[in-house]
């Protein structure tokens, strides 16, 4: 939960990762007062359904997942809402993958493993675009 109690959350965050630990870690570590976690999905297909239901403004997106991978999911989410802000959070560290995700509609890329500070800095940078 955000520590800054001075401002109410105004943006909805959805977390997509096939690892429960990472989903919980992002929820626990994100300290952006404007963000409120509205749901978490463990694969791309589940994410699309949850996205339609909860209409988040911001999404953190893993890439290597079963069912539907993250790049395909990014494309689907952007097709539903072109204004969604997507931060890819992935271990795939090659530049080509980051460029590909950005070209498909993602707005930022954070490489795993990450510190709490790196996560929050990446989210802040993403929200600066909002």
């Amino acid at each position: 939960m955000p520590m800054d109690g001075q401002s109410k959350p105004s943006l909805k965050l959805m977390i997509v990762d096939d690892s429960n630990i990472i989903r919980r870690r992002i929820e626990r570590s994100q300290q952006i007062a404007r963000l409120e976690v509205v749901g978490a999905a463990s694969n791309g297909r589940e994410a699309v359904e949850l996205f339609r239901r909860t209409k988040p403004d911001v999404v953190t997106m893993d890439l290597t997942m079963p069912e539907m991978d993250g790049v395909e999911c990014v494309q689907e989410l952007v097709a539903i809402n072109s204004k969604v802000l997507i931060l890819v959070v992935s271990a795939l560290a090659d530049k080509a993958t980051a460029v590909d995700a950005i070209e498909k509609g993602a707005n930022g890329f954070l490489c795993k493993p990450f510190t709490d500070r790196q996560l929050n800095d990446a989210l802040e940078e993403l929200l600066a675009e909002a």
């Binding site: 690892s19 630990i21 990472i22 271990a91 560290a93 090659d94 080509a96 993958t97 795993k112 493993p113």
Partner: peptide
């Protein structure tokens, strides 16, 4: 979950040198 995530992260990071 963790042991899988560690393996995934180290292998994924290797693409920095091994490529896409």
């Amino acid at each position: 979950d963790l042991v899988g995530e560690v393996a995934n992260t180290i292998s994924g990071n290797a693409r920095r040198d091994f490529g896409k």
